[in-house]
Amino acid sequence: MKITKADVEHVAKLARLEITEAEQDAFSKQLSAILTYVEQLKTLDTAGVEPTATVLEQTNVFREDKARPSLSVEKALANAPEREDGHFAVPKIIEER
């Protein structure tokens, strides 16, 4: 499986990763090698085989919908790179016209 530099750029954008020119080259080669290696799975017959998402038997785990103690606003914000008035602050999302 050949992964072109354009593929790398597309996937990097999906993953919200800015990558350098050098990384584009390296990832194109490395991902091609890895994906060529995983192609071997195609030789296994999986017709009618249920996929495994988890090895656990249970499906859903429920609890009472009751309020429990949780982090204070101060603690929850303590690691924030930027904060303002008890909120997480981010760059402006909606542009002014």
Partner: peptide, 12 residues
């Protein structure tokens, strides 16, 4: 082709 296939092989 990739993720779905891998999940099925995981079952095997």
């Amino acid at each position: 082709a990739y993720y779905g296939k891998a999940q099925a092989v995981r079952t095997l």
